[in-house]
């Protein structure tokens, strides 16, 4: 495999793996952000009106009494207006509507309550209340992120397969070009292992140089993305690598060098067996 092809494989491998790591992090962020807080929607018992202060107090009291609920905060009217204004228009119009009261419920992540239990408890006290634990959202978002991550890993597998085929083709071409020299070495007593070693050494040196070039290109591209900011590369801001991620990324150039060396060796040995 030529130096430039190796560099390209390293760039592709690192980019795809980094992208998969970013998606995994996004998934984790979304799930934590959403599952640690629930929303209660409280409609008034009297249709056409906003919930009464008593109903609101009862909702807050009921929720606060449940273990695992850390805080219960009613979303302020101004905040609600701000949220609805893009859809409903004039604030004066919004203020006249019989809107439900919304409560932001913070959950203790270490001992979260059972959403069904909370829903049952609040509906017993206030039949017009509805609890949203955001599970439907998180499931879809997680599925999306995991699909992206799986596609990234599939692309990485394609990069590895392509690299393997390229290395094998390069080794075959080099053996064909050097056929006279190989026959001479055989005839003066060189073993297949000795001859394969010569090709393997060349492949190793070329792969190391290509891997270093690939690292430099990827680092430069990464620095450029960070400098350009989230407007250009929104996913990049989520790229917070764990030790495992770093290990996986570091394994890419090393793995491609090892792959190039081993595939060259096995290809050379297989082809040499067909010669004299």
């Amino acid at each position: 495999m030529s130096l430039l092809v190796t560099a390209l494989m390293v760039v592709l491998g690192l980019t795809v793996l980094a992208g998969a790591a970013a998606l995994r992090h996004v998934d984790r962020e979304w799930r934590h952000a959403i599952t640690d807080s629930w929303t209660l929607e409280l409609n008034a018992a009297d249709p056409g009106h906003a919930p009464s202060p008593d109903e609101i107090d009862l909702a807050v009291t009921t929720l606060r009494a449940i273990p695992g609920i850390v805080t219960v905060r009613q979303i302020e009217a101004a905040e609600l207006d701000h949220l609805l204004q893009p859809w409903l228009g004039d604030p004066a119009t919004v203020a006249q509507l019989p809107l439900p009261a919304l409560f932001d419920i913070a959950i203790d992540p270490d001992r979260p309550p059972d959403p069904a239990f909370v829903d049952g408890r609040i509906r017993t006290a206030l039949p017009n209340a509805r609890l949203d634990d955001h599970q439907a959202w998180t499931r879809d978002l997680s599925r999306l992120a995991r699909t992206g991550e799986a596609m990234g890993l599939a692309l990485f597998a394609i990069v590895i397969v392509t690299a393997t085929l390229t290395v094998a083709a390069t080794a075959r071409a080099r053996l064909a070009v050097n056929r006279p020299e190989i026959e001479l070495l055989h005839r003066i007593g060189a073993s297949d292992a000795f001859i394969a070693q010569q090709f393997e050494s060349g492949a190793f040196r070329s792969a190391v140089a290509g891997a270093l070039l690939g690292l430099v290109i990827t680092a430069a591209a990464g620095a450029a993305i960070v400098a350009l900011g989230p407007a250009v590369a929104p996913l990049a801001v989520h790229l917070r690598l764990t030790l495992v991620d770093f290990a996986a990324l570091a394994a890419v150039p090393v793995g491609i060098v090892v792959l190039a060396t081993l595939v060259t060796r096995s290809t050379a040995r297989a082809l040499l067996r067909r010669l004299i």
């Binding site: 055989h186 005839r187 003066i188 007593g189 060189a190 073993s191 297949d192 067996r273």
Partner: peptide, 10 residues
């Protein structure tokens, strides 16, 4: 086949 190189060297 692998026994041939040592003989060829002689």
């Amino acid at each position: 086949r692998r026994d041939l190189p040592p003989l060829r060297r002689r």
